[in-house]
């Protein structure tokens, strides 16, 4: 699993003497492109060709199946809860980390990174351990007839946990690079804290937020490991799209599996485009300093 990386600008200062000779450059580029084709483009093409192997009608029918629709619905609900919550958390945390010094700041940074360093399966298991029938809160939840594990709340919780670094991780370096000069200027000019945030901070991190949200969303919709542990795989009820793909595949229903998988592939493509645009905009913003 890869952390969202901060973007670096390799500024081309036009010094050609230090670059490699042309054949070496072509060779390196060719290797990189071949690698991309083999590991990214080819699988993507395979997904779509399998999905459409039996034609449009079969494709649409596979998507229109009630269990599939319910998995899409659950995935959308999960993302609709997890992404806004992480957005609020990410903006607040990165604001605090980038603009202030306070005790426990390093601990907070470490905690934000935690989901990246823990296997998603473990993340899921933590929730089972806490909320499961044999877990710490299990008896109490049982007594009050609240279901978290093997139900929608568990899936949402696990997704929030797995995706919460994305937005904060993107915003912290961005806000640190921008410093707090503009915010201070706004305060001296008489702006309130809220006015400063809305009129100065927010416009400066807008594209960083979009970048973080799109990555966070892609992960929230595509998460498999953590969700798989807490879901219980109840068809038509606790299956998200990735879990549903697995079930269909295990049932040898290849066309349907790839049809549903093509939805995730489409999401990946859209994500890639938005991410590229956002990355470019963030870079522009930093260069305007």
């Amino acid at each position: 699993m890869a952390a969202p990386t901060t973007t670096y600008t390799g500024k081309n200062n036009g010094n050609h003497r230090i670059t490699e000779p042309a054949p070496v450059r072509w060779l390196l580029t060719a290797i990189a492109l071949a690698f991309l084709a083999l590991f990214l483009a080819l699988p993507l093409a395979a997904v779509f060709s399998q999905a459409f192997a039996k034609g449009w009608e079969t494709y649409l029918a596979a998507l229109w199946e009630p269990d599939t629709l319910s998995s899409v619905k659950l995935t959308l609900i999960t993302a609709a809860v997890a992404v806004p919550l992480n957005l609020v958390f990410g903006v607040i945390a990165s604001w605090a980390i980038a603009k202030f010094t306070f005790p426990g700041k390093n601990l907070l940074i470490t905690l934000i990174d935690l989901p990246f360093s823990v296997s998603p399966v473990i993340s899921g298991l933590i929730y089972v351990l806490i909320f499961g029938r044999q877990g710490w809160l299990g008896p109490w939840l049982d007594a009050h007839d609240i279901k978290i594990v093997f139900a929608v709340p568990g899936i949402i919780l696990a997704t929030i946990f797995v995706t919460f670094p994305f937005i904060a991780r993107e915003l912290i370096p961005l806000m640190e690079a921008q410093g707090k000069d503009e915010e201070e200027a706004a305060l001296v000019l008489g702006a309130s804290g809220l006015q400063t945030f809305l009129r100065v901070t927010l416009p400066n991190i807008k594209w960083g937020i979009i970048y973080g949200v799109i990555l966070c969303n892609a992960r929230a919709m595509g998460e498999f490991g953590a969700v798989s542990v807490v879901s219980g795989h109840i068809r038509g009820s606790t299956n998200t799209v990735p879990l549903h793909v697995e079930i269909l595949y295990n049932e040898y229903n290849y066309t349907a599996a790839f049809a549903v998988a093509s939805l995730l592939a489409l999401l990946a493509l859209v994500t890639l485009v938005v991410k590229t645009v956002a990355e470019w905009k963030v870079q522009q913003q930093l260069e305007r300093e």
């Binding site: 001296v188 702006a191 009129r199």
Partner: peptide, 17 residues
């Protein structure tokens, strides 16, 4: 700082970009 009514010119201008 908001209520002090001072004008402050920052070293690197700090204009709103």
């Amino acid at each position: 700082v908001r209520e002090r009514k001072v004008g402050f010119v920052f070293q690197h201008y700090a204009l709103f970009k």
